[in-house]
Write a protein that binds this DNA or RNA. Structure first.
Lengths: 342, 342
DNA sequence: TCTGGTTACGTCAACGTTGACGTAGGAGTT
DNA sequence: AACTCCTACGTCAACGTTGACGTAACCAGA
């Protein structure tokens, strides 16, 4: 079953020898270029098939003037996160339709790892990268970008210039969510957010503030909890909120794991039908919970497609000014966000 | 910001010129090989840094005798499916620790697409592949394998010999699930399965039969529904079951989307606290539903790690006999599987 | 018949890197 | 003093492919 032992992959030279032509002619036939007669084309095709010849794209890229590897890098935070996975899938689909494959990696929101992966990608001469930037500084990204690598940031914009990015309507949709709650009569709306170093968290918090202000509500610091990385921290923070003298009647949970952690606590305390919840980011089965969870849903495939479109266009030499594409999110009403204050 | 315009990536030759040594010496320094004096090493390092030199792994692989690209291919059904995503993440982690990157693609359970992706991977000279085989014949996989490409199948075994694979305890865990239901007194246990062309579906069905037989229960054909690809088909099939004269008192749903579709119908009809359900494959929030869903949980990271270990070992020349690794799944009791018949 | 153009090939070198091998100089041994 | 051995380099060719360019054969038109 493993006949590779000792054997060599056939090359153009082997095909050329069998078809009794030059390697250049084989190259022409394989690449469908003109300059080969019908009979020669047939001979070469037959020889290639007989030998099981497969073109070597890396050697080809090395020699060609455009030097394209037809491969892009995708660096997300955690490929096992449903959001990242859906995004990867969208980028991959779009790339595949252009004959481009995807080298994928998880940066775990860690600068050192992100940097290391970036170097690995660049050693493999990817044509461009789509990156979800790790929080905090973006030195490695900026450095890579300045080397000329086509780059598109997703979910979070660059802190440096000259680079495309695709994000969603974090601020506006958050404001809308808060206004939706306020319209039901809620006056004590809590904010539960992810790590503050993340741009998305900041934007969603700003939207929350705008919502409060626009509805004429007072900001209560005690109702704002941030740096909730993961379900458990979110659950703890939620529990703490309900230890307050005047607990919130509604929650705006600004990330999906935070939403889940908060729901867990509400259910434990039997509050899930009395406290309103709107979460940012949809998640599977949100509609199957009791009550269904009202969420701000991002258009993840839309974001992925747009990011892929941008990076592929840059690779093709598009030099128009950098774009910050904003893909709209939408409020999906499922019940939890429609609970009025008691 | 895009200084690449017209500029060339620095090469070893450029570094060599600046450091006033030969390219071979640069190669030695970059690769940490002996044969370069301390002072020369320093000069080369400085020159490389000054020029922003990055080694070209593709050129290196082309020339080296081992010809390794330090890249493996991963071909799953759908990278946006949580199961596939978790698996990818596990493979990626393990590969990264060996300096190997992952080229990922979704085959959509389509032979033509799988074949096409396989060709794309092979053109990029990946060192090996981890594949979730599309249902039905595996001609393209077998062909690729026979060319000598190290290959590991996950989730579904090969229909041809000489190839490693990693699966879970589909049959035994299914049998245990059925026995668990039977022990509660259920006598009418329905089977709801995914496409019959999938090996996993067949195994789980066989386990279901073993469970019935071992519990001394009679198989009722009316309670067996297969080829339920996707939530909607599963929902329809579930609805049909409850139109029977003698409907089931328990469901064994053999795939996660099937489980979700079935639960949806049970909830609509207010049966979710009266009909027992055990699902194969865990899914996010299964514990948050009402009741919590009892599932057979696969050790997805375990499967991914094992698959990566195997393919990396083969790449390193391990020629021991092919392995079919079986990673145990476990029953997770959450409530839905512990409902007794009424 | 010669010129000019086109078609169908072939030859050669180069892409960036490294394996095989060569060599100059110094140290150690007899 | 002649020898081996080692270290620290350099030279050359090749990995599989393609761009630039050459050339032989043929056809059309004057």
């Amino acid at each position: 079953m493993d006949p590779a032992a000792g054997r060599r992959e056939p090359t153009m030279r082997d095909v050329a020898a069998l078809a009794k032509v030059s390697t250049k002619t084989v190259s022409r036939v394989i690449n469908g270029l003109p300059g080969a007669g019908a009979e020669v084309v047939q001979r070469v095709r037959d020889a290639a098939r007989t030998l099981g010849y497969r073109p070597n794209l890396t050697a080809s890229a090395l020699r060609r003037s455009d030097r394209r590897s037809a491969t892009i890098g995708v660096l997300f935070e955690d490929l096992s996160n449903p959001f990242d996975a859906a995004l990867l899938r969208a980028v991959e689909d779009r790339a595949r339709h252009s004959g481009v494959l995807v080298l994928a990696g998880s940066s775990e929101d860690d600068h050192a790892l992100q940097r290391e992966l970036l170097v690995s990608l660049s050693a493999r001469r990817v044509d461009g990268v789509v990156v979800m930037a790790a929080g905090g500084h973006q030195d490695a990204l900026q450095h890579e970008r300045q080397r000329g690598t086509p780059m598109v940031l997703v979910d979070r914009p660059p802190t440096f210039g000259g680079t495309d990015c695709v994000t969603t309507t974090n601020r506006d949709s958050s404001r809308d969510a808060v206004l939706h709650l306020a319209a039901l009569g809620h006056r004590d709306i809590a904010f539960l957010g992810d790590r503050r170093t993340l741009w998305t968290s900041q934007e969603r918090y700003t939207g929350y503030l705008e919502g409060l202000a626009q509805a004429g509500l007072t900001l209560r610091d005690a109702l704002v909890r941030t740096d909730l990385h993961g379900e458990d921290l979110a659950a703890d923070a939620t529990a703490a909120l309900f230890g307050l003298d005047r607990p919130p009647t509604a929650l705006f949970t600004a990330q999906n794991l935070v939403t889940v952690g908060a729901m867990r606590v509400l259910r434990e305390r039997g509050l899930h039908h009395r406290v309103a919840v709107i979460g940012f980011d949809d998640f599977p089965l949100a509609d199957m919970l009791d009550p269904g969870i009202t969420v701000v849903r991002q258009d993840v495939p839309g974001i992925g497609r747009k990011a892929a479109d941008l990076v592929l266009a840059r690779i093709d030499g598009d030099t128009s000014p950098p774009v910050h594409a904003v893909v709209p999110a939408a409020l999906v009403r499922r019940g939890s966000g429609e609970i009025a204050p008691s």
